[in-house]
Simulated scan of single mutants.
Amino acid sequence: MENTPKLPEWARDLFVFDTETTGVNTDTARIVSAYIGRLDASGAVTAERSWLIDPGVEIPWQAQKVHGISTEQARAEGQQAPEAVAEIVAALRTALERGVPVVAYNAPYDFSIVQSEALRYGVAPLVNPSPIIDPLVIDKAVDTYRRGKRTLTVTTEHYGVRLDDAHHASADALAAGRLAQAIAQAYPQRLDVSAQQLHTAQIGWAQEQADSFIDYMRNTRGMTDFWTSGSWPVR
């Protein structure tokens, strides 16, 4: 990566995290696969761990189409969910206790489902996880009026970050980490702050973005009862 010395300190050593699941409702969905990796300032992987999990329920075909993991594969090859969830929570807790930021694209999804899974299996959940880096929230804050979708695929393409095998936990996590570094390089004046300062800023940005979306849906689309949560990084 060029201009590596211009990276803010928080972007020089990152953990990255992603899950693939049985659905979109973080209260009821189960984790099917997960990945935690560590990136250096060049975006190279220095450590990693993957999980394939038997969620204990059928994996809907809609979810299988997204991540390619069938119920049969998960049952035959996957780790039991209670054990895997405990390991994932422990790995995230260790990273955060070291003060190393954890990157997750659309962090409230992954961290909310981890919280739900932890409570489901009697694992002590993460409490106020911090510092978290969410390239989706940051990109909307630094380039608010860019038109088009903000999916991971579209946003990595915009910043010139490679994403292979989208919707595989490892590929998405690594791309999100490298995307965070690319955004940091593109907006050094806004983002050259400490990891904790950036975490705090994202709490406010996420709420502002949710409020703006609520206003749009109610006043432009006529959905007068529309509401969405602006809580971040856990909903």
Results as ranks from 00 to 15, higher is better:
residue 1 M to Q: 04
residue 84 A to P: 02
residue 135 P to L: 06
residue 173 A to M: 04
residue 44 A to M: 05
residue 47 A to P: 01
residue 213 F to G: 03
residue 64 Q to R: 12
residue 80 Q to R: 12
residue 166 A to C: 05
residue 223 M to G: 06
residue 25 N to M: 13
residue 203 I to P: 00
residue 38 R to F: 00
residue 233 P to M: 08
residue 97 E to M: 12
residue 157 E to W: 03
residue 189 Q to R: 15
residue 172 D to Q: 02
residue 61 W to S: 14
residue 181 Q to D: 08
residue 191 L to V: 02
residue 16 V to D: 02
residue 153 T to M: 04
residue 154 V to R: 10
residue 134 D to F: 08
residue 190 R to E: 15
residue 50 S to F: 10
residue 183 I to V: 14
residue 127 V to T: 10
residue 144 T to K: 15
residue 210 A to K: 05
residue 113 I to H: 08
residue 17 F to I: 07
residue 7 L to D: 04
residue 12 R to N: 08
residue 78 G to F: 08
residue 64 Q to I: 10
residue 49 R to I: 04
residue 116 S to A: 15
residue 82 P to N: 04
residue 168 H to E: 14
residue 216 Y to H: 14
residue 128 N to I: 05
residue 67 H to M: 05
residue 23 G to T: 09
residue 71 T to P: 05
residue 165 D to W: 07
residue 88 I to C: 09
residue 180 A to S: 14
residue 70 S to G: 07
residue 51 W to I: 10
residue 233 P to V: 08
residue 137 V to P: 00
residue 169 A to T: 02
residue 10 W to Q: 00
residue 223 M to A: 15
residue 180 A to H: 00
residue 57 V to I: 13
residue 1 M to R: 06
residue 74 A to L: 09
residue 54 D to G: 06
residue 44 A to C: 01
residue 98 R to Y: 11
residue 6 K to D: 14
residue 161 V to L: 05
residue 25 N to T: 13
